[in-house]
Design a protein around this nucleic acid. Sequence first.
DNA 1: TCTTAATGGTTCATATAATGAACCGGTGGA
DNA 2: TCCACCGGTTCATTATATGAACCATTAAGA
Lengths: 266, 266
Amino acid sequence: MSTIAKALALLDLFSEAQPRLGLSDLQRLTGRDKATVHRHLVALEQAGFLEQDAATRAYRLGPALTRLAGMRTRTVPEVEMLRSVIDNLSRDAGELVHVSRLQGFDLVHVHHAEEHDHPVRVSFDAYGLPPLFATASGKAYLAFSPGGVLDLALADPRTRLPDTSPPNRLEIEAELKRIAMRGYASNRDALRLGVSSVAIPIFDAASRAFATCSIAYPTGRGGKATETHLARLLMQRGEDISQAMGGAVPPQIAELWTPRQERAAS
Amino acid sequence: MSTIAKALALLDLFSEAQPRLGLSDLQRLTGRDKATVHRHLVALEQAGFLEQDAATRAYRLGPALTRLAGMRTRTVPEVEMLRSVIDNLSRDAGELVHVSRLQGFDLVHVHHAEEHDHPVRVSFDAYGLPPLFATASGKAYLAFSPGGVLDLALADPRTRLPDTSPPNRLEIEAELKRIAMRGYASNRDALRLGVSSVAIPIFDAASRAFATCSIAYPTGRGGKATETHLARLLMQRGEDISQAMGGAVPPQIAELWTPRQERAAS
DNA sequence: TCTTAATGGTTCATATAATGAACCGGTGGA
DNA sequence: TCCACCGGTTCATTATATGAACCATTAAGA
């Protein structure tokens, strides 16, 4: 393990639970010699990756990180930021994975990845701008947005399939509540016959839903078991996806997506 | 120079102008041996601080940066994030520096720093919620916000001093335009007699003004020369301040604040 | 009050890990 | 075909990271 890797590994020890760590804490967590850890800390601090509280002498993550992260989000297109995590998800799921961003109430395509494991799989055509209420993505977005958004969506004719009446308000509210409870939205044959999907929202830096990620699979492939399996995969990657876009999943939803013991392990 | 510092210095070579750099580019920029640079790059990539484009083999800033930066903004209070840069600014200016955040049209105090160089200096009392139109900060915010914001501000009685009529619309528009042109707002004796100030906006991650930073000084101390001197100091630190809060200054304003040659040097 | 055990930080002989000249294989002009 | 440049690798040499022992300070505990 290179010296660089050892030093950078120190940064990963900082967490929401423990944002401030002292020299001894880090020495214990790493098992390395105190002098070694200290020199690493000094190097990281001089580069601005850590900063030291003058009073407590504890270390915390430094300003260089926000500077460089800002540079990244400005210079790297969002497609590139998503690619590795979405590709991995597609490989694990063996199905088509789909990321859309919300522009008004339009779901505009951002990125997709497909895996060729299954002989029969959902083909992706840019069937642009599907109505919000006809997709798992749309419902995932609405279920994790503030209340007023639903009212606006119900009023807008673009959110439903052409030549249909607005969705029943009480039914939709009940469904969105169920989605918010279990953490993901699902759909069976709603938009295209034979195509089912599961979806979760993607959150921005202010923890507001602004995009969605979905997995589409042939309805014929499986029943409830398939759905829950794919939803689990999706939710496990939920935090990675939001983080890749520079956002943050609200704590209670993160807890819903990845149960306590898994979070502790990571 | 430690190995860690050398590796981390590589990250600073990535910029908006050159977000993708190849091995040879980095080797030239650092003057170090190619093998050395390559091993550093691999270490950084494995830690997620860089990622390599599979096609071009060029490197770009990696996802670990956004992850850690998000952690920082969530765990470190904004006061702490500002402290070092504001303290430095106060020391350089020798005057009271002041950061306020906008909540609706209220300027709420976030952080301040005072330097004791001058025997006579502006004393800070928490004269809470000064009206927008009576402060340099307020005008700096309005001058760098979308047009509609001014309309709302003019309509709100809280934005002006009690028992005064609303500001003349044309006059204000002309002043805000002048502020936007030169990059900073100024005030002489408007809110408190004997107190002048200069101010600039602070931008969030979406490059929207959401807070302000101002320097206050006794009006008696100097005339136009003092004002431009302090404004220059303020604008030079403008990018650092926004970046410290996790935000980004819009390019054209960054250019206005720090002329081309200085930017090239950094 | 004197002890003890934490804390953060430093020193310097030692050993390990970083270094760089030379090398490889591939690609894209001239 | 040649040549230059690219990203990447190898291995003897050397410089650098390492860690046991040390110091100074603080805060309980007896």
